[in-house]
Design a protein around this nucleic acid. Sequence first.
DNA 1: CGTTAGCACTCTTCTTTGATGAGTGCTAAC
DNA 2: GTTAGCACTCATCAAAGAAGAGTGCTAACG
Lengths: 346, 346
Amino acid sequence: MAEELNERSQNILEAIVEDYIASAEPVGSRAITKRHSFNLSPASVRNVMSDLEDMGFLCSPHTSAGRIPTEKGFHYYIDSLLKVRHLSKDEERKLLKSYRFQGMKMEDVMQEVGRVMSGLSNYTGLVMAPKFASTVFRQIEFIRLSHGRLLVIYVSETGLVQNKVIECPDDLSQRELEQINNYLNHELTGLNIHDVREKISSELKDERSRFDQLRRQALSLSSKALQEEADDLVYVSGTSLMLEQPEFSTPEKMKRIIQALESKKTLIDLLDRGQAAAGVQIFIGSQSQLTELEGCSLVTSTFSNQKGAIGTLGVIGPMRMSYSQVIPIVDFTAQMVSRILEREIE
Amino acid sequence: MAEELNERSQNILEAIVEDYIASAEPVGSRAITKRHSFNLSPASVRNVMSDLEDMGFLCSPHTSAGRIPTEKGFHYYIDSLLKVRHLSKDEERKLLKSYRFQGMKMEDVMQEVGRVMSGLSNYTGLVMAPKFASTVFRQIEFIRLSHGRLLVIYVSETGLVQNKVIECPDDLSQRELEQINNYLNHELTGLNIHDVREKISSELKDERSRFDQLRRQALSLSSKALQEEADDLVYVSGTSLMLEQPEFSTPEKMKRIIQALESKKTLIDLLDRGQAAAGVQIFIGSQSQLTELEGCSLVTSTFSNQKGAIGTLGVIGPMRMSYSQVIPIVDFTAQMVSRILEREIE
DNA sequence: CGTTAGCACTCTTCTTTGATGAGTGCTAAC
DNA sequence: GTTAGCACTCATCAAAGAAGAGTGCTAACG
């Protein structure tokens, strides 16, 4: 990381990475001198390339091919050479226009965001809705399904709806449930889920609860309803775009990629890591530590409202993805979704 | 369809179809006499095969390959030759055990059903949840999101939860909304959505509504909430299994299939057709009229409760899928899901 | 001393060629 | 009606050669 390159080496590395991003093919010394005007002969470029290879920034698939950037090469490129083009106001306006969130529920917004990101970048879009645990409680409803089976619906401040089924030994009538709903909604609205849990467990210990039948029921039900994490929601858009990439053009690689994108669990783990820090994060190649996603890179960013509902969105593509294009798209989209979440609360 | 084949031709056609299903490769005259004991020489079989080809049941990819069944061949096989093996009680028990629906919400049940069908058949599983319009109303909740924006949650008798966002010019307080909720839930529970719509529109015309502010609001909101169909839910499981099929082993075909399975809309159209008739339905090859799904077959069945919530599930695979295995799986699964839906209402 | 032209060398890719083998269709005999 | 025999077709595979791209090294140049 601390390794220093002189300017010429940097220029050549940059040229190689960019040519490789554009062509997906090993780039040779001759091609570089042609496409970029360094006033250097291919032979000189070759010397530099040889040095860069020794330092681990490049590698050659075989003797008589050009060089391709290694993971380290991409790293260096992204950290030191890449100039991220910000979107012009005009582009932003255009982008905003392509979204139509009017009257859309949260799930649809997430899906749509993924679709548009994918469409703009021509890579696969990923969106992970805010974890329920990170949201602020808005409303809970218990609905009787059948003897001893209750449907719980909870709604977050941002309009995210989740539901689950719980078993309940007492067969409560819908009327009783309504009272419970009222009680809970009155008590809990506006707290984040963490606080809700805490409040419930402390109240359950409270002496008074012993004597108040309704309250006890309410607390025990909601405790049950919230004790297990609901599944994370992940939206994948443009899976097939991955298959258009020349690096995944063989049947085996296609299978591997599709399997990886099929496994929501893998994706959740991956996106979770994007929440570690704010702003755009980039995971290159083996950093993801998933062999299924070998050769892939992931650009993510998080979105949230002030109250902390944190979700992640991003774009996954080949390691040689067009970072200068993708980064501003992901960045802007995340900010936009955050604004939508804010608007939702108002 | 009315075409008649003598017994020998039938036997040979059956043998060819089954060998082809097993091997995915053109089957030759010699191979048949070897694997099945017809007491016929390859030459005789060849004559029959030649006839079958003339009649359009078989075709040869090229002169020196064996024959493969045409779509017509598969049709004949399925309609006249296939003996569907029913599941033994023991197998049914085993199958039932592999499902764990305890405490699962409806969405999860659907997803799980798809997964298990896919796992059992080794093909791609499809499940389409009952259309909301076919369900019976259980509960509706309006929740205020922000100025003029309401979240509507509706729950069907079977525990299916859907939500959407509607715009509402009047800024109603949560308290007013609760009254509206109460009113509507009291009035509408137990009706199917069709009746609900009718009731609302007739009441809206009713003179009395003019004077009852609350009632008018309630009706107008619910009319808005129910006027547009919510999106259909489709669950696809085991996409990558499709890529294991030798007929889709080239990159181009893989792309095509993945694109087709990615498009929920295509799948919905396809599954909708399965609702035309009860019981197991089979769509072979071009019957689906989707070029993206060329070479595929679909085996579907519908599930429902007595009140009419109708959904479709099935398995999609290559035309040469193992129908004798898949049909009982799909059939039994559909029945099982129906039972679960019944239990849900109880 | 950095830079460059020249050249031999390597290795992939593409095309050609020929061998192999599976399978057919026809004919003649059973 | 059935079957053995045989010529013929055509895909598949492997080997071989030609073309081309790119490198690394060396020696000369400014």
